[in-house]
Design a protein around this nucleic acid. Structure first.
Lengths: 245, 245
DNA sequence: AAATTGCAGATTGTTGACAATCTAGCCTCC
DNA sequence: GGAGGCTAGATTGTCAACAATCTGCAATTT
């Protein structure tokens, strides 16, 4: 395998602790409003408070926890407005990234094959049976596709927004298995095909439709379906591609 | 004054150290590639390594320093591609924010007056004589205007990109006083007026023109003027509003 | 002489202890 | 009876010492 002599992961203790905490927040072990007490966590992970403290401060800019001076950190409680904002940003930056990807013909790169592989993963029955795995595969696919742009800073922003999205799924108590997997995979296929075809307009349209469908899903699960259209941002993220019944 | 009973600043030691370091990087005291040695800095600021370490890690996600595991931190060295990427994101998200601001009639809010004040600051001769002060006033104005959207997350992203822009100015060795202050202030006035008038199209156009002019300025200072149009992103950030001679 | 190995100094990573701050409950005093 | 002050416990903020790692140079080998 070509992965044998790949650069070492080299995660610091703080990184490892941050990973554990992130997982705990994203799988619902830690719930919004829960306190993160440095002493407790240090004892549980069998490390000192230093790395734990660093890990918590690593999660703060990711939006997963809120720091309050001299009062410790709590798990964030995002609102539906946050969802709309993040997806509005995601729509906007994603359109930029995908347009750039198509224009530079990134559809021919080896990284394109990676995205195809990740989509195959999502088709796997055992993955579909596990909401957590499905969520991870979905976001990995989106990161891969958007990463085709070859724009490191914008890709980083988009990966950040993907993490935000992941946190919303669990923090807002949305179960991923309620999603229509077939429709999701179909949207992803459409995205890949239009990139491969070098059709910028179709790619952007596919992306807009994906965002729109995802936000609709959120709105339904969140129970805000009725008055979502009142929100000024809603018309941006839902666009004109709504799957009207 | 309404600012008298505003929440206290409450900056931790780490925050204060981070502020000093940020200033040092932005005013050129620390140059790209310079090492940030925890021991040295701790001694200079007369604190222990803990807060210094935390401060350095605070600057990393801001893009000002690069962390290398077990090898300390160095001041970042952004490339011209970074400039284009950041401004492409800024164009994209700013358009979103401003559209939203106009649609929700934020032009009538008290925060609008704040932006007007900041523009007045920029007209001050003593400010214009100080490149550092001028840069700060410019970015404060832009943050204020974009903050009119009332979208906290997107505003945060835009403030981040403004800090990126500020770091480019100094890290790339661009002197802010070479800018045509009159043209800059005029662009800002156009932006404010179109927001006040509630004209979304004019606002977006003014923003695009501002980004385009700024990037052109960067390109000129950076000496990449000749082949900038070859870059696939350039056509996005420069748009069709170029001030052609 | 070129390449490799081993060492010494410098620097980061981690730890446990101490100081400062906050929270909540009780008490006092009007 | 309620407002304000006080105290105890818990928790975060800071520090200095120790351990692990890296860098550059010199010694060694071929």
């Amino acid at each position: 395998m070509s992965t044998t002599f790949t650069p070492l992961p080299e995660a610091s203790t703080a990184d490892l602790v941050a990973d554990r905490l992130r997982d705990a927040i994203l799988d619902g072990t830690l719930r919004p409003g829960d306190r993160l007490v440095e002493t407790d966590l240090a004892e549980r992970f069998a490390v000192s408070r230093g790395p734990v403290r660093e890990a918590i401060r690593l999660l703060a800019p990711e939006g997963l926890v809120i720091l309050r001076r001299n009062r410790g950190a709590i798990v964030a409680s995002p609102t539906f407005d946050d969802v709309l904002e993040v997806y509005a940003a995601r729509l906007s930056l994603g359109t930029l990234a995908l347009t750039h990807a198509v224009e530079t013909r990134s559809g021919e790169s080896s990284r394109f094959a990676e995205a195809v592989d990740l989509l195959t993963t999502m088709r796997d029955d055992s993955v579909q049976a596990d909401p957590q795995a499905m969520l991870e595969a979905d976001l990995a696919f989106q990161d891969a596709v958007l990463g085709l742009s070859g724009l490191p800073r914008i890709s980083t922003m988009l990966e950040q927004s993907a993490r935000d999205a992941a946190s919303f799924v669990s923090l807002l108590g949305i179960t991923y298995d309620s999603t229509d997997h077939v429709a999701l995979i179909e949207r992803h296929e459409r995205l890949l095909n239009s990139i491969a075809a070098g059709d910028a307009d179709a790619t952007v349209a596919a992306w807009q439709q994906h965002i729109s469908a995802t936000v609709s899903e959120f709105a339904r699960a969140y129970g805000a379906d009725a008055h979502i259209h009142d929100h000024p941002l809603a018309h941006h993220v839902l666009g004109t591609n709504q799957e009207t019944p």
